[in-house]
Simulated assay, not measured.
Amino acid sequence: MNAKHRKVILVITLCYTVLIFYFMFLAFGRAATVDRVTGYSFLFLPDAFFRLPGLSDLLHPTLMDVWALGNIAAFIPFGVLIPLLYRTGFFRYMILFILCILVLETVQALTLLGSFDINDVIQNSLGAAVGFGAFRFGYRTKKVWRNIAATCIAAIVLMIGIWGSFGIVDKAFTKELGPFIALNELKNSGINSSGTQRDSFRIGGQNVEPQYNAYSTEGQQTLTYTYTLGKKELFLYLNFGIPNQEDANGSISISADGQEYLSTSAEEPSDEPGMSSIYLQGANELTITLEGNVRIWDVGFREMRYTWNW
């Protein structure tokens, strides 16, 4: 590389660095919000940095989708420009780059123009690594334009590889809702009744036909159902109401491991069935107490599980 080319690359590097500084410290109205910030913000624990927008997300991208990709793509040029200016190995380059990003993130937080976010450090560094890899693959000849084209293609291929890898990792470590499991499929540790009586009834102007189960006090004043969930993270679903032609008097209480999550009572006829969804994290023993003429039906849950644990 002759002196003229080196000067051009140096000017491009400086201009691009100024542009990055602008986006890190001044863009998005950062300066105007400084007086409204009440304290420093330091986020040291990585959270969802493997989450990059999927193909379906790109059809209707949100600001967070653009931000996630931009955090990587914006720093790819440094992986090309710096090795062109200074002969350096990958590890030395990455150590210096990460130190610089840590300093900039700290300055962002201390000046109240942003926050120190370890997710940004990881994503920015990943972009710089992609750029360095693309440079190593692309710059193999003395023809400038061929090198530039090869580097761009290599960067795109590496980004697609990173995108796919992150998608796999995100899928593997993100919990999703499993299939619906009716409560009567679990072992009832409290009484013999399992809620399998599914006779139809009317509430208000609607005819109700339970699909999975139905629970009542079975002619008693109060009845309690107890189930062992096995310390699962899940969403519990149920429908409830008082059927027509029965006294409008009843209540429901749902608790897990001694903590109450739902308590409702009815003293007037229901116009329509009620529905409820309850989030339970690590619950072991589920207790459902019914009083009066209230009924619940199609009670079940969907467990939060990793895809590899299905």
Rank of each mutant, 00 (worst) to 15 (best):
S276D: 07
D257F: 08
G161K: 10
Q259F: 09
I242D: 04
R36F: 04
T217M: 01
G219P: 03
Y225C: 01
V157N: 09
G195I: 02
S56N: 11
L59S: 12
L104S: 02
F235M: 04
G219Q: 12
S265D: 14
P53W: 14
G127H: 13
Y86S: 04
N119F: 01
W163T: 09
S125R: 05
L110P: 01
F132I: 09
I296Y: 02
D247Q: 13
F235T: 00
V107R: 01
A48V: 03
S263D: 10
T141A: 01
G274W: 14
G29E: 12
P243C: 04
K232Q: 15
R198D: 10
I122E: 06
S253T: 15
L102P: 01
I254F: 06
P53E: 14
P77C: 05
E218R: 09
V34D: 11
I76L: 08
H60P: 00
I252F: 05
Y225D: 08
Y215P: 03
I278G: 00
P61W: 07
L236E: 07
A3C: 04
D271L: 07
G39N: 11
W297F: 02
W145H: 06
V157E: 09
N293V: 05
L236A: 13
L183M: 13
T222D: 13
L234F: 11
Q245P: 02
L110H: 02
G39K: 07
G138I: 00
F201Q: 10
Q108T: 00
T88C: 15
R6S: 13
G54P: 03
R87N: 11
V294G: 02
V103F: 08
G54K: 10
G274P: 06
N213L: 04
D35W: 02
T226K: 14
L177H: 06
L14M: 11
R87F: 03
I181C: 02
C152D: 02
G70T: 07
F50I: 02
P83H: 01
M159R: 04
L236N: 10
H5C: 03
N284K: 12
G70F: 12
G29A: 08
M159S: 10
Y261E: 12
Y139M: 11
T264I: 15
Q221K: 10
M64W: 12
L59R: 12
D271C: 00
A68D: 13
S270E: 10
M159P: 02
R87V: 05
A27R: 06
L58C: 05
A150N: 10
M94G: 08
L158M: 14
